[in-house]
């Protein structure tokens, strides 16, 4: 393409194609007579929980005072014991001077709670984060083992990488939970995180190995010729440079792990995907929920991609 080529006709074409696609999907969906219920979705993000506040003892209402939108009720028991409770001002059911018996409702309080979509997202995020950290550690060790001069060490790492890369993650998760998990009595979270970490580790090992080997041999020699030990040279000279080079593939791997973590829903870990399935069984809002779940994964992964992009630019200073 030359510099004088106009880009706007192509943008127009792109917009046209996207609109056509959307219209096509819309058209097909309306033919199957699906009733969209988007209004049911927000409550699965956040919902307002109502909690009744009850009288703890027999006694009287001594005082009711307003505090913003809330009402503060002072109760006095028959033995003179006093207690203050706070309820939502609009729901108050008592007045000053009322006699109360233990268990009478004074009013209600409201609280915003995270719905299953948010708790599921949270589970997905922490499981991915913990697996990434362990995956990085395992991958670093296996990657260093792969470039070892020792045959046994090198081959052990190679076998690990081959086995993991040659089998499906879903099967690995089943083995981790139903086989290894049963033998060693592992919690499902431990089995799930373990499987994800070992899976990521194998890919990280390859990324780290190639990153280290892409750093010129002269760097290691220069460091060693100054009297630095092998670990010192690795930590101060090789790994920081390798890290800069492997940041893009490494972060791609971890972003993939967020998506791959959806597979742990098969061992009943309530991550975002499992939450989606559970909501559908009670609402039948199948289309809406899966679209929302997909959008949530997409938002998380693209925010992370942007962050990595920013890091890459910052690290480029010294080149």
């Amino acid at each position: 393409m030359t510099a004088t080529d106009k880009v706007w006709p192509w943008k127009l074409l792109l917009a046209g194609i996207l609109i056509l696609l959307a219209a096509g999907i819309w058209g097909s969906v309306s033919r199957i007579d699906y009733e969209w219920r988007w209004y049911r979705v927000p409550q699965y993000f956040l919902y307002k929980a109502e909690d009744a506040i009850k009288t703890p003892f027999d006694g009287v209402v001594k005082e009711v005072s307003a505090s913003g939108r809330d009402a503060v009720v002072t109760l006095a028991s028959l033995d003179g014991e006093q207690q203050k409770v706070t309820v939502d001002g609009e729901t108050i059911k008592v007045d000053a001077g009322d006699d109360l018996f233990e268990g009478d409702t004074i009013g209600f309080v409201y609280e915003w709670n995270m719905g299953p979509l948010l708790t599921g997202l949270w589970t997905t995020l922490w499981i991915s984060a913990v697996s990434s950290v362990f995956g990085l550690i395992i991958g670093l060790i296996a990657g260093l083992m792969k470039i070892s001069k020792n045959y046994t060490v090198r081959t052990l790492a190679a076998i690990y990488v081959e086995v993991i890369r040659g089998t499906p993650l879903l099967v690995q998760i089943f083995i981790a939970y139903f086989f290894i998990g049963t033998v060693f009595n592992l919690d499902r979270n431990v089995a799930g995180i373990g499987a994800l970490a070992l899976f990521a580790g194998a890919y990280v090992a390859e990324i780290i190995r190639s990153g280290i080997q892409s750093i010129a041999k002269g760097q290691m020699e220069a460091a060693r010729s100054l009297g630095m030990s092998l670990p010192q040279a690795m930590m101060d000279i090789i790994l920081p440079q390798a890290f800069k080079r492997i940041l893009p593939p490494l972060s791609g791997q971890f972003i993939s792990l967020i998506k791959d973590s959806s597979l742990v829903s098969v061992i009943a870990i309530t991550d975002l995907t499992k939450s989606g399935r559970e909501i559908i069984t009670s609402t039948f809002a199948t289309f809406e929920i899966w679209l929302v779940v997909a959008a949530m994964y997409l938002i998380v992964t693209s925010v992370l991609s942007q962050f990595v992009f920013y890091l890459e630019r910052r690290y480029r200073v010294s080149d």
Partner: peptide
């Protein structure tokens, strides 16, 4: 490592540490 600290070496390709400043190359 002790011996190498006593024996300086200069390479054809310089082999400076590209991620460190000139000063850091000398102090590390």
């Amino acid at each position: 490592n002790k011996i190498r600290a006593e024996v300086g070496m200069v390479f054809q390709q310089f082999n400076l540490f590209p991620h460190k400043t000139v000063l850091e190359n000398l102090t590390l």
